[in-house]
């Protein structure tokens, strides 16, 4: 967090590439080793290098939420972080939300309530909701509407998304009782 003021010029143009190094990510429970350069964004590492294409790129600037994954359980925008910064971290992507063939209650509720159309924002929506539910941040429909606002759905499935998450909350609640 140094002073971000001032403008850097690139100076001499670099024609050689930044050196790569090995990192380990624990993705969906499995250790994945990866040789990457510092400039590889976590989102691009998942999609291009690890073939985990369920995590989506919708804006690449933290303005849509399609790239949401859980890092150590917390939802984050994977487009705004370097993969190398997460050496050793636990990453959960949409591919790791279901338990084998058994869908997570949020996934099941999304299907039942038709909480998506094109499906492109859906993995981000689901990761976001799962993270919020796990953290106990959702109590009312207003909570859902506000806290899910970081996940844009251009198809406009919002009322169905709210209904799906409410259902998942109830099933979690009944499971806890």
């Amino acid at each position: 967090m140094n002073n971000k003021s001032g403008v850097e010029t690139a100076g001499n143009v670099s024609t050689s590439l930044p050196p790569k190094s090995w990192i380990t990510l624990k993705i969906n429970g499995a250790e994945r080793h990866l040789e990457i350069a510092p400039w590889t964004i976590l989102l691009d590492a998942l999609r291009n290098l690890l073939d985990l294409t369920g995590t989506k790129k919708g804006c690449d600037h933290g303005q849509c939420g399609a790239c949401t994954v859980l890092i150590d359980g917390k939802p984050i925008n994977s487009c705004l972080t370097l993969a190398i910064m997460h050496d050793g971290a636990e990453v959960t992507t949409i591919e790791g939300i279901a338990k084998g063939d058994a869908l997570h209650p949020v996934q099941q509720a999304f299907i039942e309530h038709d909480a998506f159309q094109c499906g492109y924002c859906t993995p981000g929506q689901i990761c976001s909701a799962v993270g919020l539910l796990n953290a106990g941040k959702l109590r009312t429909p207003d909570d859902i509407r506000e806290l899910m606002s970081g996940n844009i759905c251009r198809c406009g499935a919002y009322p169905n998304i709210v209904a799906a998450i409410e259902q998942a909350m109830q099933s979690e609640g009944s499971a806890a009782q």
Partner: peptide, 12 residues
């Protein structure tokens, strides 16, 4: 911002 961004962004 959004809850995802707030989970990343720091005070400084």
């Amino acid at each position: 911002a959004s809850h995802q961004l707030r989970n990343m962004a720091t005070t400084g």
